[in-house]
Design a protein around this nucleic acid. Structure first.
Lengths: 228, 228
DNA sequence: TCAAAAGTGTTAATTCTACACCCATGT
DNA sequence: ACATGGGTGTAGAATTAACACTTTTGA
């Protein structure tokens, strides 16, 4: 009875989001084979026989970006409709990953063509992403928007050192709304643990020099920000 | 290459929570076979070859409780550590389910011994639940507590018709804190869509007669309640 | 008449929102 | 000098938290 179970393929797929040129973008790869040949898909792949699921997600990220740290990764949801992959019964554990603008290092070791595309465009395009990846990307976007409201996760989109104004622009991009700079500044700077000051300042955004910060502990904390 | 993938077993496990006698309880089944023979485990089982994952979870619920409706069910998280089941590589899609006090109908069609046990006790017991079910139950508890704060999900623990006082006791039980009856009453009754009045009243809780309500739409809505 | 729970009113504290306003730089 | 974004102050609105008080029943 132990060996008598229906076999499934288990994969991980990753909705890796970043902000480039003021747009929320996702990393997608062009499929080289059927099914969905030529269509964009989220990066992902099989979980190996002795590999933890989270480790598989991190490995895929490393393979696609060439980088092994600096991401925030969390499990999003598992998708397993019987015919979501026409070749075989496949269950995919989708992950949400957030990263700063990685500009160059996108073409990783994987042979497939990989690109950053605006999330809006990907979700609106017909035909859309391969498999159920449009659904996954939509769910990832919803999760990211929600988590920015009650966790310091916006900082995951920022580089090592960043200003409060840069952080605010992240929120404005993800939510698609304007955020009051004065109130935002107060909110984040008085939330303990959200921002770690470096002591340095920069004028790269123009105007008066702004303090530079590093991310505090991402997980856990909760600064009630507001979308409207 | 298509057929050359590592095969996994895929299961669903369900943390079914309810409130009995003022205690938050979970449905557990006694394992009849190795591994973990004699230990408590969450109900669950294999996903069938042509079955959607959510359908598998609903089927398990039906098999364990004998009931096919009246639950709230949502996917919780997927657990797939390589050696979580010593027999084979198994990935389980855990679900959180909430139900009113089902008292009698617990011994479903399944042969296994099934019981309601206090969540506290299950989480504190040594040795604990079989497999990683202690972890799953802990995560389910955390999710349930969090969702009660910003969704009308507390009503999922209540019978068809209930009073505001009964609903409040649900919150107090799940959070383990006292909640001010006056403020709670205002909050839930002025949140549109949370409660649907039946027009009836009852005195079953003693004191002045209380209005009876039905659940409004569970999902979606958000009444900012408070735990402390 | 009393206890017990339902439900309403009120007030002070807190938090949010929308700005006015000053600061420190590059051009 | 001035445009630009950084950052602080503040007043009014909205929300929350705490609790006095009235209502309606069963015992």
């Amino acid at each position: 009875m132990v060996e008598d179970y229906p076999p499934f393929a288990v994969t991980v797929d990753i909705a890796l989001l970043t902000i480039r040129a003021g747009e929320l973008c996702a990393l997608v790869v062009r499929r080289g084979e059927a099914p969905y040949r030529g269509r964009w898909a989220l990066p992902g792949g099989f979980v190996r026989p002795d590999e933890d699921i989270e480790a598989a997600a991190l490995r895929e990220l490393r393979e696609e970006t060439g980088l092994s740290h600096g991401f925030h990764v969390e499990q999003l949801r598992t998708y397993g409709a019987p015919r979501r992959d026409p070749r075989m019964r496949t269950v995919t554990v989708a992950h949400l990953a957030l990263a700063p603008d990685l500009t160059n290092p996108v073409a990783g070791t994987d042979a497939a063509e990989a690109e950053w595309r605006a999330v809006d465009t990907l979700l609106a395009a017909r035909p859309g992403l391969a498999f159920d990846h449009g659904q996954i990307l939509g769910d990832a976007l919803e999760r990211a928007r929600a988590k920015l409201e009650y966790t310091p996760l916006g900082a995951a989109f920022c580089p090592e050192e960043f200003t409060v104004g840069e952080l605010r622009r992240v929120y404005e991009t993800v939510w698609g709304t304007a955020v009051d700079p004065r109130n935002f500044h107060r909110k984040v700077s008085k939330t303990p643990g959200f921002l770690v000051p470096t002591g340095e300042t920069t004028t790269r955004d123009g105007g008066r020099p702004a303090q530079l910060f590093r991310r505090g502990s991402l997980e856990v904390l909760s600064p009630p920000l507001t979308r409207g």
